[in-house]
Design a protein around this nucleic acid. Structure first.
Length: 931
RNA sequence: GCCGGAGUGGCGAAAUGGCAGACGCGAUUGACUCAAAAUCAAUUGUCCGCAAGGGCGUGUGGGUUCGACUCCCACCUCCGGCACCA
C-alpha cells in the first residue's frame, strides 16, 4: 500500500528544491519568445489573506502554462509599501511606519512563498526603499523639467481642529472619523501632473486586449466632449469664460452659474447679496463632490446681484452661484440654458428665472418657456436664435450636428468664442500632506522661487528619527533637519514637505522589476528591450480607472521624454521592431473578482435579567440549539430568546423574531454559558451573525490562508480557489466545498502511487481513454487561454472519473496507464505544481515537470465515430437517434423525420419547416422540426 | 446621482444564439463496519404520474428568432468605482 498524500511534506520539499535550482529565475534570452506575466503587487497590510491567493495563484497557473507552452516567462512580485495605514499605525500604536511596513513585508514574504508560485524573487521591488523611490523622485524631476508637473490649487479635506489634511476615507458624513469634528473643503497649493496632455492618446485602445468594461469606464472617466468656449462679460466688463457642448443653444442662455469657489465670485457680488453669498459658500465647503453632483437633489443657489451680457444677443442675464457647478470641471462657470438642460431647467423653475426655448422638437406644439415641463435636449429645429433660426439640430454631438456646426462658425466669426474640446478628466493631483510617501525633490528658495534637487543628491531621503503627533500632521512639516536645506547657491532654503501619491509608485513598478538593483537608471535597458511590454496583467476591476489610467499616462510621458530610447535601440539590434513597443505598458489585462466573507449564523441565546424599557440588563445568558428556541420561549416567557445579530463588547443585538432587534446589555459578572466551549465562558465568546461582505479584521470574517495551507496543503487551496469560483466574479468563501478538491487530489495520489496494472488492457476502453485525454487537453488549454480556471479543473476531474473507472475495471495495460498519467500530470502541473512534480518523479519521468512542453492536442484522436442527433419540436428537444458524427443535412433530416419522436407529434402531417444545425465544436447535431 | 458589472437547482457553478444545470458540495438510499468516519454504488431542478410520459423552469415584464441564460427595450435587487484606502 502506497503512502498517504501528505502535502505538507512534499510541498516544503519541492519549494526548497525549485529554489535551490533557481527554476523560476527568469533571464533575458533573445533566442526564445518572452512572456511578462504581472499580477498587481500587494500593499503590505499585515497578513496575506485569501483574496491575495485568489488573485495570485490563478495568475501563477497561467504563467506556468505559458512557460510550458514554450515562452520564457517572467513573473515577479513586490510591495506597494508607502501609504496611509502605516501612518495610522504610527499615530495609533506608536510604531514607526518603516518598522511596521518592513515587519509586514517580512511576514508576507513567507506567506507568499507558501503558495508555491513561480515568483522570481531576485526581481523583488519595494517602493519604500530609497533605491526605488530615488527613481520615483527622478521621474518627478523630469516631468517638472519638461512642463508635465506644475503647481496649482486644489480642494483638500481640512480639519480645523487637527490642522491637518484628511484622506477621503477618514471623513465620514462630513466629520473626521477620529474626533467627530467637522471637516471643510479648503483650497491649497499643490503639485499636479498634466494628465490631460495624454487624454486623447489614452482613448486609443486599438493595440490592447483589455476587458471591454474597463475600456468603457476609462473612456467615460476621460470624458472627452467637443463644443466651444464662449466668453461672456459682466456688466462691469469682467470676462467669464464658459465651455459648452451646445453652443447652438447660447440664445437660450438666460442666466449664468459660477462655482461657489470661482475667483470672480467675491469681486462681482453686490453688497446687498454679500452675506447670503458668504453663507452659501461656507455651506458648500462642507459638501462632498458626490453630494454636489447628485442629480436627484433639490437645486440650491444664490444670486450674486451681478449681471452678464449674452454675447450673441446682448441680453442682460443674472449671475448666480450654485453647488452643481464644480470649479475643477470645464471653466468653473456655465451659461445656463434652462430650455435645453434639465439641471438648469430645475434651477430656473425653482428660482423663477426666464426660460427661452431654442430647439423646437418635431411634430409638437410650439414650446413656451412659461409652460414647458422639462428641458428638451433632443432633435428639432432652431428657434429664437437669430441667424441660426430654421437650422436643423439633429441631436448628435459636435460638428456632426448642423446647428452646432453653424453656431461654432458664427461665434468664431463675431469673435466671442472658439471651437474647443473639454475633458472630464482632471489633472493628476500628486501632492499628499503626509510623511510616508516618496519625497518631492524640490527646494523652496528664500526669494520665493523653486529649484529641483540635483541628481547627485537624489534621493531626498525620508528622515527616520521623527516623532508622530496624534493629530496625524506630517512630521516633515516640523522636523527641522529635513525641512532646512540650502539651494544650489548654498543659501538657506526649505524642502518641499508634500510627498507623492502612492499611485505614482505603482505606475512604474513593472519597470523596476526588470532590474531592481540597477543603479544607473530606473531600469536596465537590456532587460526592458527584451521583456517589455507586460504581456498579461491581472488584478481587481476596482482599479479600472485610477491605477490603470495613471500607469498608462506615466508610460506615455516617460516614452516621450526618451526614457525608453536605449531599450528601443537594443531591441532593434536584436531584430525586434520597436515601433509602438513602448506606447502602452500592458498589452493584455484581465480582472478577477473579490472573495467575500462567509455567511455565518450567530449564536442563539436565552437571556434573563432586569428589563429596563426595551432594554434587558442580563445577568444570565445561555447559548442553546437553534431548534430549541421555540421551546425556550414558552418555558421562559420573561427571557429574550433569539440569534445574536451583532455584538459590540457586552452589548448584544438579538433577533427574537419581532420587528425590531432587542438590545441586551450583559452586566458585569453575568453568567455566560456556552456548552460548545468548555470551561468558564465570557461574553466575548458569543458569536454574532455575519453577512456576506468584504473581509476585514474588524468584522472578524477574515479567512486565513495559512491555516488552510497547514490543513490541506497549498495545492488544494490553489485548486479550490480556481475551481470553486468564476474567477472574474469571485464570491463568498465557503469552507465546506473544498472537500471536492481534497477528494480529487487524494484520488490522483492514489492512482499515481498505485502499483501499475498487470492486465493486458481492453483496446476499446484504451481508445476511449485516449479520446477523453485529448478532449481534456483541448478543454484545459481553452480554459487556460480564457482564464476559465474552473472549467479547466472540471475537465481534469471528469478525466479522473473516467480513468478511475477504467482502472477499477482493470481495462488498462501498464502502457496505457502510464501514458494517461503522463499527460494528466502535465495538464495539472500549472494548477497543482507540487503534487504533479512529486508523482512525476515517482513515476520515473525526468525532472522537472515544470520544464516540460505542454501536451499537443490531436483532433483525430479526440474524435468519436458516432454521435447523438437531437430531434427538436419548435426548438424543444423531444428525442435522439445515433448517427455518424459527420452526418450531412439531408441524411440528418431524413433520420429525424423517421424517428419515433417525430412520428409521435407529426401524426402524418407535413412539418412547416425543418432546420438542420450541424454539430460543431463537440456539440451534437440537431434537427428542429417546426409545426 | 453618474459610470461599469452581476442575478441560473438547497449551495459553488457550466453552457461560440442550438439537449439548461457539465464538474463539484450537500442531501437521500444502499454496501463495508459492532459503530462512526473514510471509501464504494445509486438517486438528486421542480410539479403531476405506479410507470411510460407530460407540464413548468435561467431576477421581473415585453420583443426579435425555426430556436434566447445568451441579442434588443423597460424595470427590480445586489456588487465595484467616483479622483487623498490601495
Amino acid at each position: 500500500m502506497a503512502d498517504k498524500y501528505t502535502p505538507q511534506t512534499i510541498e516544503a520539499k519541492w519549494q526548497q528544491r525549485w529554489d535551490d535550482d533557481g527554476l523560476y529565475r527568469s533571464r533575458v534570452d533573445w533566442s526564445r519568445p518572452k512572456h511578462y506575466a504581472l499580477t498587481m503587487l500587494p500593499y503590505p497590510s499585515g497578513d496575506l489573506h485569501i483574496g491575495h491567493w485568489f488573485a495570485m495563484t490563478p495568475s501563477d497557473a497561467r504563467a506556468r502554462y505559458m512557460r510550458m507552452k514554450g515562452f520564457n516567462v517572467m513573473f515577479p512580485m513586490g510591495f506597494d509599501a508607502f501609504g496611509l495605514p502605516a501612518e495610522n499605525a504610527a499615530v495609533q500604536r506608536n510604531i514607526h511606519p518603516k518598522t511596521w511596513t518592513y515587519a509586514n513585508i517580512e511576514r508576507m514574504r513567507k506567506q507568499l512563498r507558501s503558495m508555491g508560485a513561480m515568483f522570481d524573487w531576485t526581481r523583488e521591488a519595494i517602493s519604500c526603499e530609497p533605491s526605488y523611490y530615488k527613481w520615483t523622485e527622478w521621474f518627478f524631476k523630469i516631468f517638472y523639467e519638461n512642463d508635465l508637473a506644475y503647481r496649482g490649487e486644489a480642494l483638500v479635506n481640512w480639519s480645523p481642529t487637527l490642522q491637518t489634511v484628511l484622506a477621503n476615507e477618514q471623513v465620514i458624513d462630513g466629520k473626521d472619523e477620529r474626533t467627530g469634528q467637522p471637516v471643510v473643503q479648503k483650497l491649497m497649493t499643490q503639485w499636479f501632473f498634466r494628465y490631460r496632455h495624454y487624454a486623447d492618446e489614452m482613448l486609443d485602445f486599438s493595440k490592447m486586449d483589455w476587458p471591454e468594461p474597463v475600456k468603457i469606464m476609462q473612456e467615460n472617466w476621460i470624458g472627452r466632449s467637443e463644443g466651444a468656449r464662449i466668453v461672456f462679460k459682466t456688466e462691469a466688463g469682467d470676462p467669464i469664460e464658459v465651455f459648452t457642448t451646445r453652443p447652438d443653444t447660447v440664445w437660450g442662455a438666460t442666466f449664468m452659474v459660477l462655482a461657489p469657489e470661482h475667483p470672480l465670485v467675491e469681486k462681482i457680488t453686490t453688497d446687498a447679496q454679500r452675506a447670503d453669498i458668504h453663507a452659501y459658500v461656507e455651506r458648500v465647503a462642507r459638501e462632498t463632490e458626490l453630494e454636489r453632483t447628485a442629480e436627484d437633489r433639490e437645486k440650491t443657489g444664490v444670486f450674486t446681484g451681478a449681471f452678464a451680457v449674452n454675447p450673441v444677443n446682448d441680453a442682460r442675464i443674472p449671475i448666480w452661484i450654485a453647488d452643481y457647478v464644480l470649479v475643477n470641471y470645464g471653466t468653473g462657470a456655465i451659461m445656463a440654458v434652462p430650455s435645453g438642460d434639465q439641471r438648469d431647467f430645475e434651477f430656473a423653475r425653482k428660482f423663477g428665472l426666464e426660460i427661452i426655448p431654442v430647439v423646437q422638437p418635431d411634430d409638437q406644439p410650439l414650446l413656451d418657456g412659461a409652460t414647458m415641463e422639462a428641458a428638451w435636449d433632443g432633435a428639432g429645429t432652431m428657434i429664437n436664435s437669430g441667424p441660426l433660426n430654421g437650422i436643423r439640430a439633429n441631436g448628435e454631438k459636435g460638428r456632426k450636428n448642423p446647428s452646432v456646426d453653424a453656431a461654432i462658425d458664427y461665434i468664431e466669426e463675431i469673435m466671442v468664442g472658439k471651437e474647443a474640446v473639454n475633458y472630464r478628466l482632471r489633472d493628476w493631483l500628486i501632492s499628499r500632506q503626509r510623511y510616508w510617501g516618496s519625497p518631492i525633490p524640490m527646494v523652496h528658495c528664500e526669494d520665493g522661487t523653486m529649484e529641483t534637487v540635483p541628481d547627485d543628491q537624489l534621493p531626498v531621503v525620508l528622515p527616520d528619527d521623527v516623532e508622530f503627533m496624534p493629530t496625524g500632521r506630517s512630521p516633515l512639516t516640523y522636523y527641522a533637519p529635513f525641512l532646512n536645506t540650502v539651494d544650489r547657491e548654498g543659501r538657506p532654503a526649505k524642502r518641499e514637505t508634500d510627498t507623492m501619491d502612492t499611485f505614482m509608485c505603482s505606475s512604474w513598478y513593472h519597470l523596476r522589476y526588470l532590474s531592481p538593483k540597477y543603479a544607473a537608471a530606473p531600469f536596465d535597458p537590456e532587460e526592458a528591450a527584451y521583456w517589455l511590454p507586460v504581456d498579461t496583467y491581472t488584478g481587481g476591476a476596482e482599479h479600472a480607472t485610477m491605477h490603470l489610467l495613471y500607469t498608462r499616462w506615466f508610460n506615455k510621458a516617460i516614452r516621450d521624454l526618451g526614457v525608453f530610447d536605449d531599450a528601443r535601440t537594443i531591441a532593434a539590434a536584436h531584430g525586434r521592431s520597436a515601433d509602438g513597443l513602448f506606447d502602452e505598458p500592458m498589452m493584455q489585462m484581465r480582472n478577477q473578482g473579490q472573495i467575500l466573507g462567509e455567511e455565518r449564523e450567530g449564536d442563539v441565546v436565552v437571556a434573563t435579567g432586569r428589563a429596563d424599557g426595551a432594554k434587558l440588563f442580563a445577568d444570565y445568558v445561555e447559548v442553546i440549539d437553534r431548534d430549541q428556541a421555540e421551546a425556550a420561549r414558552q418555558q421562559k416567557p420573561d427571557a429574550i430568546v433569539g440569534q445574536i445579530m451583532k455584538r459590540t463588547e457586552n452589548l448584544l443585538q438579538v433577533d427574537d423574531g419581532g420587528d425590531t432587534l432587542r438590545t441586551i446589555e450583559v452586566v458585569q459578572g453575568a453568567t455566560v454559558v456556552i456548552p460548545s466551549i468548555p470551561g468558564a465562558n465570557n461574553v466575548n465568546q458569543l458569536r454574532q451573525h455575519l453577512d456576506i461582505q468584504r473581509m476585514s479584521k474588524s468584522k472578524g470574517n477574515v479567512v486565513n490562508p495559512d491555516e488552510l495551507v497547514a490543513q490541506y496543503g497549498a495545492d488544494t487551496v490553489r485548486a479550490y480557489l480556481m475551481f470553486g469560483f468564476d474567477w472574474s466574479k469571485g464570491g463568498p468563501w465557503n469552507s465546506q466545498q473544498i472537500s471536492g478538491v481534497v477528494r480529487w487530489l487524494n484520488d490522483i495520489w492514489e492512482i499515481g502511487t498505485a502499483e501499475p496494472p498487470t492486465g493486458a488492457g481492453d483496446p476499446e476502453v484504451e481508445r476511449e481513454i485516449e479520446r477523453r485525454m485529448h478532449q481534456t487537453i483541448a478543454k484545459v488549454g481553452e480554459g487556460m487561454e480564457s482564464f476559465s480556471f474552473n472549467t479547466t479543473i472540471a475537465a481534469l476531474m471528469a478525466f479522473r472519473n473516467d480513468l478511475k473507472t477504467a482502472i477499477r475495471d482493470d481495462k488498462l495495460s501498464e502502457r496505457a496507464w502510464r501514458a494517461a498519467l503522463h499527460e494528466m500530470l502535465l495538464l495539472m502541473a500549472p494548477i497543482t505544481p507540487h503534487i504533479a512534480e512529486e508523482l512525476w518523479e515517482q513515476l520515473g519521468f525526468a525532472y522537472s515537470i515544470h520544464e516540460q512542453a505542454w501536451p499537443v492536442y490531436d483532433a483525430d484522436k479526440a474524435k468519436s465515430e458516432m454521435t447523438t442527433l437531437v430531434i427538436m419540436k419548435n426548438g424543444k428537444p423531444v428525442g435522439h437517434v445515433e448517427v455518424p458524427v459527420d452526418i450531412e443535412a439531408e441524411a440528418a433530416q431524413e433520420a429525424a423525420l423517421a424517428s419515433d419522436a417525430a412520428k409521435r407529434f407529426l401524426n402524418g402531417d407535413k412539418p412547416k419547416k425543418v432546420v438542420f444545425v450541424p454539430g460543431r465544436n463537440g456539440m451534437e447535431p440537431k434537427v428542429n422540426i417546426v409545426v
